[in-house]
Design a protein around this nucleic acid. Sequence first.
DNA 1: GTCTATATGAAGATAGAC
DNA 2: GTCTATCTTCATATAGAC
Lengths: 225, 225
Amino acid sequence: MSALKLANLPESTRRLAETSPTLPEGVRPSGPRGIVLDAALRLFAEHGFAGASIRDIAQAAGVQPATFYAHYPSKEHLLADLIRIGHEAHHQRLRAALLDSSPDPRQQLMAYVRAHVRMHCELSMLAIVANSELHVLNAELAGPAATLREQSTQLLAEVIERGRRAGVFSVPDTWLAVAAIGGMGLRVAYWFSSHHELSAETVADTYAQFACRIVGVHDSNGVQK
Amino acid sequence: MSALKLANLPESTRRLAETSPTLPEGVRPSGPRGIVLDAALRLFAEHGFAGASIRDIAQAAGVQPATFYAHYPSKEHLLADLIRIGHEAHHQRLRAALLDSSPDPRQQLMAYVRAHVRMHCELSMLAIVANSELHVLNAELAGPAATLREQSTQLLAEVIERGRRAGVFSVPDTWLAVAAIGGMGLRVAYWFSSHHELSAETVADTYAQFACRIVGVHDSNGVQK
DNA sequence: GTCTATATGAAGATAGAC
DNA sequence: GTCTATCTTCATATAGAC
């Protein structure tokens, strides 16, 4: 990708709606390293890992390409850092949501989905990079994130299984429900942006209602028309 | 991506479960052009457009890199061809499903989702490339596919709107229901494979049931537990 | 830490023989 | 149509001055 193409982006269909990179509270390094991380987050989200070069990232960060290597040993390590941050933020929010929830399976499901969707709204670039570029990393660098991903999926599976055993949920296949609920939330990162007419809260609440319906729970509160 | 990395793929997390490229009936060219198209489909699906080189594609197809240019004027035109094929196959299947369906909104929704999900099972690599690489194309090459995509989305929106007006469906926001139902089906392409323990039919039927539930329709038939 | 300059290889694409 | 050979640009990454 040339610098010229970067400037001409608006002419082509965008990969995602969001235009500004956001990193979770407290993890963004100060100084040039944070600027480089922001630039890489945006460019990896928009063009993918292979579609954004060190030169592109350095230019977007306002430094020379060689300066990048004062902060990261390689482009792949930079990606690994972003993917780690993304998976940790995701998993931590899910776990916190479940810990704050009442033990009722329906409340747990709604808490999980709300946190899942809110993360994909508020950290959409990070979610896209973490989800769609993990395959680029070698086994050693991908391992920790892959483990977190599996644990996050497992959390949802357990919520649904508990609801089934309690006779509250009714689904033909737990794994398919997990895939459907997780997948629909994941896709939010591509069309949501901080300028969307709907708020992240509204989207999260509505998707939580959709998730309840998927597992066969009728509405008792929440958004309705 | 080097040839060496290609051979070592199993060591890293895969982007998708499917391993063999499939093109829709009747559109795969015979001879070397079809072999090149198959090779590009697999490599673009696994590594993305920017992550697969002409040299990789040529090697996978068993020809020299220069031979590629006897069939396509550029790498971007090859991608445009795959994306066109994918969007046309998707749209044609959706339209056929709706035409074959009774006018009942619930039947139409199930027909749409079944076709949507089956396409993402049976042509998973094509769906991934068409969906996740469109942003690479310039406006001229992306235009036709973007139009088809919008029309396919609009079809689902109209089905849901009709169901709402008929008082059969109950959703807080048509667009969010479209995004959720479309998105969960799209994600199937990443985890389904021709060797999956569940059949494409089973997945499609279950997702059709999920879609009915999302729009607030109770079960009357279909998979249930 | 940041720079200029550069080593080394891989990228897309073409020339021209057969 | 396919090949060998090659042009040109861009890639990741490093050396070494400040």
